[in-house]
Design a protein around this nucleic acid. Sequence first.
DNA 1: GACCTGCTGCGGTATG
Length: 767
Amino acid sequence: MPPSNSELKGYDRLAKPVQRWLWDQKWKNLRPIQEQAIAALLDREGDIIISAATAGGKTEAAFLPLISQVLQQPSKPGFALVYVGPLRALINDQFARMQDLCAQTELPVYPWHGDIPQNIKARARKNPRGVVLITPESLEALFVLRGQEIASLFATTQAIVIDELHVMLDNERGVHLRSLLTRLELAVEHKIRRVGLSATLGDMHLARQFLRPEAPDDVELIEDRSGQPQLKVQVQVRGYISRGEYAKDKDQNKVKDKDQDKVKDKVKDKVKECAAERAVAEHLFKNLRGTNNLIFAGSRKKVEQYADALRHCSERLQLANEFFPHHANLHREQRNSLEKRLKSKVPTTAVCTSTLELGIDIGAIECVAHIGSPAAVAALRQRLGRSGRRAGQPALLRMYAIEQELGAESEDWYGRLRLGLVRAIAMVELLLAKWCEPPNKQALNLSTLVHQILSIIAERGGASAQRIYTTLCRRGPFHTVSKELYQQLLRRMAAREVELIEQAANNLLMPGRVGERLVNHYTFYAVFQTPDEYRIVAAGKQLGTLARNGIVRVGGTIIFSGRRWFVTAIHNENKVIEVTAAKTGQPPVFGGEIPPTHDQVAAKISQVLAGTTGYRYLDTQATALLQEARKEFKCLRLFQNPICDLGRSWLIATGVGTVKTSTLAFTLESHGYQCPQDKTHLMLMATGFLKVGCGDKNLPPVSEALAKIANSPPPAVGSILSGNESLQQEKYHRYLGRDLLLADVASSRIDLNAMPELARRLLNRNQ
DNA sequence: GACCTGCTGCGGTATG
């Protein structure tokens, strides 16, 4: 039955071929967001954000009316519609759907990313019409390589649709895309309507600001309120203690010297970890088997460990394995087959990293499990969005917090604070309060600015300093860069030891020797940094990749792709690691950094520790661990007094996130104090605690230094950082030199202005 | 105790 007009108000307004497509789909009616989007896109001309859950019909909401509009106008050369997607897999998926939708029209649809053959791209360039689906990096490549063609390719573009807008909000890639959108409008000399497709976030104003920074209030917001009026979540947090099984062997391994002691400590940790891990794996196995689930393990190493442990559970009971690993280092073929299995009716659980956080639809998911707390509330929210259960049913979240058993020898107060569990509770509380981390608007993004300056020069075959400044800093996303700082950056880029740019006789900026080399290499198009990797091969079949710093040696064993392997050879010349099946193995080290925590999360951690109320979603063990943590917090009197005297050192409960806590650490170090930065202490800083020592110096109590900080202007970046620290993190940081690098770091990873106020607050509470 | 994302042109040779 074709839908009748009274059922579909928007239906009548769509072009005939689009109506025929709808009829073929046998849709009973259009969803509310699709009705709203049709009205908004056909009645008005402004920018729009369409926000709904995964599989909520966002793409159709945008393209049904946009394609209708294109069909109602005479066809002129140029891509009528541009779709920008963050993943190649997503573009392939959307291309199939779009081709189907456009099958009964004259409109061609072109996919455009690194895997698309050149002949298809050449055809699109020769006959630019219809719809193009492209990645930000391929759009960048067009600017660099076909700068002269940009204006004609996009001359008649009516709208640019940005998919998964929310993943672009807070990173280098998002700044890059915003820069490209501005450059596109300047090239065609008219405004192009922007349509953002986004998951539902806490604060949608951020998405509007991203889409049209100069006029966020004019961006119309269409939200899907039908599916999930509120984010309904059913949460369960389970606590575990890793008990010391190693104690049994104690007498058998007599300690002879210090070195052996160290080795034994390592073995001890490993055994402890295994015991708690096994219990978690068994609980997961018992509760998830038979349905489709996602287990977010937190790191690639843990993905390998748990996939291996869960496979073991199946083998022991002689049952078919349903648990498989999924992370970026696994070969595409393996990832694809697991994704297919998740979509099928065979019960499947993926043990994964953030690879399965966004992207193609993976079907109905019964439960989202999380081992340890996530890096950010925003990630947790996004992951729960993958729990595609029937409408009206709450998403099911299971969290597993593993804490160390405290022996008599263990007097560490931080162990007793149970910060892993407390952090997990804080994150759940913030999630339930519908809060999530906003992007950092202060950052200068100088690495990405260097990239875009080089790109504009390549696009135009030379450009004036003023023109670049207007494009990128006035109209584009680099608002926080002053004219003075911009000039300083240009001088640096032109310096003899850098040679990124040079000035021609006519004052135009041209590529320098090094700049030319960078721009002409195919690795230029992405703004983010990537490591050098080895391929892991078993019997000629590629399993995946491992970064060069992953420690693997011939004769050793590894766990990879959820199985155990023996390393038979390493070929450095073509970067291949050969393996054969083995009985035992250790998961490889993939490397990485401790993620920064937002101020709100640290504040919530303090609140949870200082509070007295229980949480219904904690199991008995987790409740006991929380009580223990609260007792210790009370014992240290941290709520009354955030500065706790530990003898020759102090513990400061800063109650603020990683950025401010580590800035305080650097500032106190510039006053002569020592703030340890090993893994334990970095983890402490990420939960709002700082340990301060005197070293071998005779220094006054730390409160005296805090008083000085409280009564002085904010410290200068050069006075707390020497420039010798390992600060280079982004792709073009290496070209900045000390002063510009410090300025960039000061804008993003430290907060100097917050210091006097933070010191005052800590001292006032101290009295 | 981190995670993810992306990528062109050209020359050589084989095949229809």
